[in-house]
Simulated scan of single mutants.
Amino acid sequence: MPYSIMLDAGHGGRDPGAVYNGRQEKIDTLSLTLAIGQILQERGIDVLYTRTTDIYESPYQKAMEANEAGVDFFISIHRNSFPQDNAVSGVESLVYDKSGIKLEMAENINEQLEGIGFVNLGVKARPGLVVLRRTKMPAVLVEVGFINSDTDNMLFDDNFSDIALAIAEGILDTLGINTPVVPLPDENEAPVAPLPDENTYPDDAFPNEDNVPVVPLPPRYTVQTGAFRNPLYAERLRRELSELDFPASVVEGNGLYRVMVGVFPTLHDAAETERRLRSAGYQTVIVSQ
């Protein structure tokens, strides 16, 4: 069953949000929210919106809509503001408290946006915000740069599509949806290299003078613990595993950074390491090389 997420474009209607040189927060948030939603839908997420046009709903109404819909997550998109123009720039995310999957999702979103060029101002607990306090599901409010920062506005306008993708990727990475599904080998069906039979090899399979056949090497196994589009996430997981004495490394390929643990000659050895990793709370899959 797919995840469901309600996306909230901050402010709207009679509430323009923060305003700077004629620029209105409610317009930026709506366009960005719709772009994020399209990406999430393409990845199989059920997306609902608090608004898709320029209308006003109170924060309480938005929280109640999410609760009544029974969605899995609530993500609210905003632009920040500071009393003095061009004094502060950067992205930050707000959560009810700094715990659980909402904190992980907020951190992942911030790191993705940092990769675009925003200053990462971190995650802050704001238990007084209605959309964070009254929602019954994990909720994150993302402040996508300061609307009264020329630096952030330039980043926002010049990298709009990348920003939408970054926020979507932060959400998807948290849910594990960006991790490819690799079939788990069945120990009873593990491939076994056959004994060489001279009669089964063609003439060109004996490249040396002693007519010694070239025997394919038996498969080796490794344990994958994660796959990310952002190398920062992969490196963070690698360091975490290394601190627990797991021989972790990052392997790049096909646009993904995979975190792998060990190289094992037998499926049994790989399965033993996988058991230890799962006992430590990590999601794993054994892959053959």
Rank of each mutant, 00 (worst) to 15 (best):
N80F: 04
I109F: 13
R79K: 13
D97Y: 12
G115V: 04
A69D: 00
G115P: 03
E114P: 00
Y56S: 08
S99A: 13
E42K: 15
E104L: 11
T135H: 10
K62Y: 00
I77D: 08
F73I: 01
R134F: 09
V123L: 07
L103D: 06
V71L: 10
A63Y: 03
D54Q: 06
Y56E: 07
I55Q: 08
G44H: 08
R133K: 12
Q38Y: 11
L103W: 10
M64S: 11
K124L: 13
R43G: 00
V130E: 05
L113Q: 11
L129M: 10
H78N: 07
G70P: 07
V130K: 05
I77H: 04
V71S: 05
L94Q: 13
P127A: 04
M105R: 02
G37Y: 07
F73Q: 03
E114V: 00
I116C: 04
S58M: 07
G70I: 05
L113S: 07
Q38R: 15
Q38D: 14
T50M: 10
N108P: 03
A125Y: 02
F73C: 05
V95K: 06
A35S: 10
D97I: 01
Y60D: 05
I109D: 11
L48F: 13
K102S: 15
D97K: 14
L40E: 07
Q41Y: 00
I101N: 01
D46Q: 12
D72S: 14
L30N: 10
K102R: 15
P127W: 01
I101P: 00
K124H: 14
Q41D: 04
I55E: 14
E57Y: 14
I36L: 09
S99C: 01
R43K: 15
A35W: 00
P59S: 11
L34I: 08
T29R: 04
A35V: 03
F82H: 15
A87D: 13
E92W: 09
K98E: 08
I109Y: 13
V95M: 09
G122T: 09
L32C: 05
M105A: 12
S93L: 07
E104S: 09
D28S: 05
I39H: 03
P83K: 03
K124V: 13
F82I: 01
Y56I: 02
S93M: 08
K98F: 02
G100W: 06
V91W: 04
E65S: 12
I101E: 03
V131F: 05
Q112I: 00
Q41F: 00
K102N: 12
N67P: 01
I77G: 03
L103G: 02
Q38K: 15
L132Q: 10
L94M: 13
V131L: 09
R126T: 04
